[in-house]
Design a protein around this nucleic acid. Structure first.
Lengths: 151, 151
DNA sequence: TCCAGTTAGATGCATTTGCATGTATACCAG
DNA sequence: CTGGTATACATGCAAATGCATCTAACTGGA
């Protein structure tokens, strides 16, 4: 017995559309509130999680799926805003460690309030708890390395 | 009996990550092939579907979820590349109608080949047909207007 | 017919991105 | 130690984006 291969576009098209819709809603809400966008949030969040150890730019690159120059310049802007500091990296003269400042943490929290609120409004109403769980599970499947026998 | 509200981030975070991952893969493949990006594809696809009637820019705006100036300038580039023509709109002196050219259709088909191929590689291997169907269904739920009683 | 308000689309300017490349340090084979 | 390669990060330049604003044409009411 053979199972017909799924049409990837049946997944991708609504995924892309949902992504753009939600993202637009969040960014609009943030702008409305006079707060920075989600790219700033993501970086600040990672730094806050990293605590006193901070993070190297190349680590951010992996965590945020950004190109090298993307992290470099994003960090520039965050530093200029006073939300992080660059510290010379002991043990690697090429590198640096990024550390969040109290102002950065404060701003991250403010973004979070709006971010979280918008998600409640744009995502939550569409699903029961069970549906949300199944959707989350299926999306995670997309991120795991593909089963070897399927490639 | 109460059902606990789903955590929207359990859906959103993997969704955003999956989106970025897939998008990056497609764009890289297109660049590699020397072809335009998905924004060009989307516009050309809509025009091709519209056929001889063409489409007004403001219609594209809705279909593609782009801001007004986004459509305006995207159309500029496509026109400069010879992939579409702007035609004065009979009946509305302010407006115009965008029409795909044969070169535009040809290029759209080339993009499609790479696009489709990349989707097969990045999406298909992760799912059974049933899973893909369920995922697609759940994602569509995100796009439907939210149930009135849930807001 | 005329004016006020609305809609379609373009565009100047500042910011952001992408790409290619540059600089400096680290690592390693001989 | 030395020269070659690889890694970490920055940056000049061109293209794309976001925002605000502009023009032109439509619409509806007095």
């Amino acid at each position: 017995m053979t199972t017909s291969a799924p049409d990837p576009f049946a997944v991708w098209l609504p995924l892309a559309r949902a992504h753009k819709t939600i993202l637009t809603a969040v960014e609009a809400a943030l702008k409305q509130a006079g707060l920075p966008g989600l790219d700033w949030y993501d970086l600040l969040w990672e730094l806050e999680c990293a605590g006193d150890a901070g993070l190297r730019p190349y680590e951010l690159q992996d965590k945020l799926l950004l190109p090298q120059y993307g992290v470099s310049r994003l960090a520039d802007r965050l530093a200029k805003a006073g939300y992080l500091t660059r510290q010379d990296c002991s043990g690697d003269g090429r590198g640096q460690v990024l550390l969040i400042t109290p102002e950065g943490a404060e701003t991250r929290a403010q973004i979070w309030a709006v971010y979280s609120d918008t998600m409640q409004q744009t995502v939550t109403p569409h699903f029961s708890a069970g549906e949300a769980r199944r959707l989350a599970d299926l999306l995670e499947k997309l991120l795991r390395p593909a089963p070897a026998d399927k490639i």
